[in-house]
Structure formats: structure tokens, C-alpha cells
Amino acid sequence: MSNATAWADDDVVEFVSLTSGGQAFCVEIAHVREIRRWSEVTSLPHASPSVLGVINLRGAVIPIVDLSLCLGLGPSPSHARNVVIVASVNSRIFGILVGSVSEILSIRRDEVRKNPTQMKENEPNYITGLLTVGDGEMLRILDLTELVIQGPERG
């Protein structure tokens, strides 16, 4: 499901924190290849609504997904601060449109809380864990594999 099981307790894991649909999330930095400004996409026929289209990333054709739509938080409003996180998961490269990216967090593995809404061990869930930062704000860790690659195909 995710690489989380491979972590040892005292490993330090880095996350990129972001906002999408006005809410705070984070993704593991190992999956992030680069962060770039929004650029015009070419729409794809017969694509799910959350797939905005494809862009040219130095010669590679990569799809762009609206994270907010994926999470069921409605379409991202177009905003100057919108950014695209280019992620690479299972050798697939895609971009996710997010509201903003704020910082990189270094978190010890044992500080990552389990997602209490995930009842069964093997039930698919795109939130693999929870983090608390600074003033008690909660960040949800997104599993991009689950959310972007498997999610839309499952319908």
C-alpha cells in the first residue's frame, strides 16, 4: 500500500506540507520530483474530471490531477499561488495541482500517528497517517499511489 511499513522507528522522514481545497495535507518528499508553477494544460478526451490534462515537462508528457477534486473538495479555484507538485510513484510521473506548498518537515517515524478512521488493516485509504505540527495543527499524510493512481481507476 505504501512504503510506510519499511520505515524503522527512529528514521527521520521528510514531508512536504501543502494545502488543497483549503485544508492541510502533506506528502512524503521521496515521491516529489519538483514543484513548478501552473502552466496551461492540454485536455484529454474521456478523462475523469479530476484529470485536468497533460503538460510538457521537458519533453515528457505528464498528466495533471486536481488534488482538491480527487479528495472530493471541489475544483481548485484558479489562483496565482497554485502550484503543481510533480510526483513520481511506481515509475509513473504525474503532477498534482495544489493550492500552495508551504514547508518541508522532518519527522521521526514514531511521531507519525495512525489514521484512526482506518479500521481494517488492509482497507485502502489514501490517508496513511497523521502528524501534529507546531501549534497543534494536524496534517494528513497522503498516499499518492492510493489516491491518484488507483483511486480514479477504481471509479
Binding site: 496551461e40 478526451p45 510538457n56 508528457v61 510521473i93
Partner: peptide, 19 residues
């Protein structure tokens, strides 16, 4: 990176960098 699209065989990049 994406998958198969009905009616589309591939993509290309045009002179203006657009797909």
C-alpha cells in the same frame, strides 16, 4: 504516465511547447 485514451494513439509536442 497516464494510460490509454480511446481515440488517441499518442501525443506530441508542438513548436510552442504545447502538447
Amino acid at each position: 504516465n497516464y494510460g490509454n485514451i480511446p481515440g488517441v494513439s499518442a501525443a506530441t509536442i508542438l513548436g510552442d511547447g504545447k502538447i
